[in-house]
Amino acid sequence: MSEHRPLRSYGRTKARTLKPRQAGLVETLLPHLALDLSKEIDVRLPAPLRGGAGGGGSGGDLSGEPAARTPISDSAPQGGGESLDASPLVLEIGFGGGEHLVAQAAAQPHAHFIGVEPFLNGVASCLRHIEESGVTNVRLHHGDARDVLARLPDASLDRVDILFPDPWPKKRHWKRRLIQPEFVSELARAVKPGGEVHFATDWANYAAWTLEVFARAPYFAWTAERAADWRTPWPGHVTTRYEQKRLGDCAPVWLRFARLA
């Protein structure tokens, strides 16, 4: 990683005091699910040291129908019949309260999921969802997603979900936005050819900003063919609490970018 830390792309990291149950999960469960960033991340992500079987999700294909790669769908082998090395790997950056992340993991028990969130209260909420659902295919990092990305092997990710990141709406703060040319280049290194980046925002300027940054990079292609492609969520999307609040200045914009070979 660079010797100079990049500008922080997120706001606060903690709000109200955690409830006793949440604090307990942070103390006892998080250490078993936390990534070890002292070395390259092992994408096989073995099961954590705790009980529980794959939870009962809603099912359905959550891959957004990507091409030229192993789809993340319920039709793929599940359980011990599939090699861990062949399991799809999904990174969700800024998972908020964890509703989307855990629902995806429960519906796709054959895939591996990594969730990153700097907000401690969100991490605690996600841990509660993990415990209640019983999913065992999720790993977490409480901190900066760029640190996780730097520790992932080349071409290891099948999909990256970036849902409603901090928009930094004031022009003087745009340099703090997560989507920057350097970040997109690092995504290109870690995402497999044919893999996808899913980005959603309810700020019009951030949507335009993201399209411009990706358009200038030679690594990705915007997959939209008609207006409905960016006006409606991709298949399998799970609505989050933040999304329901409608805090932005426009209806949600849904962008999909495919990694070029």
Rank of each mutant, 00 (worst) to 15 (best):
R69D: 03
D36G: 06
E27Q: 11
G55P: 02
A53T: 15
G64Q: 04
L37Q: 02
L37V: 01
S58N: 12
A68G: 10
G55L: 01
L35N: 03
L45H: 05
S63H: 07
T70Q: 05
G57C: 03
D61R: 04
A68D: 15
G59A: 02
L45P: 03
L49V: 07
R21A: 06
P46E: 15
A53P: 04
P48C: 09
R44V: 11
A53E: 14
D61F: 01
A34Y: 12
G57E: 04
P48R: 09
G54V: 02
G59C: 01
T70F: 05
E27H: 08
Q22N: 10
A34Q: 15
R44I: 08
G64M: 05
S38T: 14
L25F: 07
L29F: 08
S38Y: 03
R21I: 07
L30W: 08
S38V: 05
R50L: 13
V26Q: 09
L37M: 00
R50Q: 13
G60L: 00
G64P: 04
E40N: 10
V43N: 11
D36Y: 03
D42G: 02
P66Y: 00
G56N: 13
L30I: 10
L29P: 09
G24Q: 13
Q22D: 11
V43S: 14
L25K: 11
E40C: 05
G24T: 09
A23S: 13
H32C: 08
T28C: 01
L33A: 07
K39C: 10
S58D: 14
